[in-house]
């Protein structure tokens, strides 16, 4: 699905990533772990096209998309959520999800201004579809609330609904459990499994080790911008380098 080869990223003098190569296999949940500042978010930014990589290539289903802008990648079914929730704060919850349906609709500036009949039916279609995704994450009652007023937990759910509305092939989630309490985290684990059951491949950056160990099929460990190890959760847990560099201090 997503293949990274030799990814490096420098910010001025700082090397945030170096020599990152791994693949996220279709249908899997791949965890990307590592201490703060390891470069996980930067990696997602490169995968989704927010920054270009300084070196290396990003391939999606074998296609080199290294220099594609994010909006073009979205049309290939690559989408993400953000560590510091990025909602459309002044829009309603439902409208947020409707933006997630942007790639599946096409009325442009003229069709919208003139209210063409087909534009009206498209509008109805995406409205219904958006409601479906609010239902899916469990916040249908909030549809008319302004997104900026949502609690942290609900905001995260909305971000997931918005991303799922895009019918992604690959969903990258950046610390979705951060700031959630334990029952919310359990619900999240369940939600991510349901997402996988819809045959969406998931990339998951997360600090909550219980969650990671529970749901991930394979793990990539980053430390100081380099790859420390890859493998199944089992293997990672037993990897002495990881234990000293990361698990030892984080747990």
């Amino acid at each position: 699905m997503l293949k990274l080869t030799g990814i490096g990223k420098r910010f001025g003098g700082l090397t945030a990533l170096q020599g990152i190569s791994f693949e996220i296999v279709p249908g899997s949940i791949t965890g990307i772990i590592g201490p703060n500042g390891a470069g996980k978010t930067t990696l997602f930014n490169i995968a989704t096209g927010i920054y270009p990589p300084s070196e290396g290539a990003v391939l999606l289903d074998g296609k080199d998309i290294s220099n594609w802008p994010p909006e073009k990648r979205a049309y290939l079914g690559l989408v993400r959520t953000f560590q510091n929730i990025e909602l459309f704060g002044k829009m309603t919850v439902l409208e947020n999800v409707m933006v997630g349906l942007h790639t599946q609709s096409k009325s442009g500036i003229f069709a919208c201004a003139l209210r063409m009949p087909w534009q009206m039916s498209e509008e109805r279609r995406i409205r219904e579809e958006a409601r479906k995704w609010l239902e899916f994450v469990g916040i249908p009652e909030l549809e008319n609330v302004e997104a900026g007023t949502l609690s942290f937990g609900k905001g995260r759910l909305l971000e997931i609904a918005r991303a799922m509305a895009l019918k992604p092939k690959l969903l990258l989630m950046d610390e979705p459990a951060a700031g959630l309490n334990s029952s919310e985290t359990a619900d999240l684990a369940d939600l991510i499994k349901r997402i996988r059951d819809l045959r969406v491949t998931v990339g998951l950056v997360e600090h909550d080790m219980d969650l990671v160990m529970d749901i991930c099929d394979s793990l990539v460990v980053l430390n100081l911008g380099t790859m420390l190890a890859t493998g199944t959760p089992r293997e990672i847990q037993d990897n002495p380098a990881v234990v000293t560099a990361y698990l030892g201090e984080a747990e």
Partner: peptide
């Protein structure tokens, strides 16, 4: 000057 990358 050289360019900088905006943070996300």
């Amino acid at each position: 000057k050289k360019g900088e990358t905006e943070r996300v």
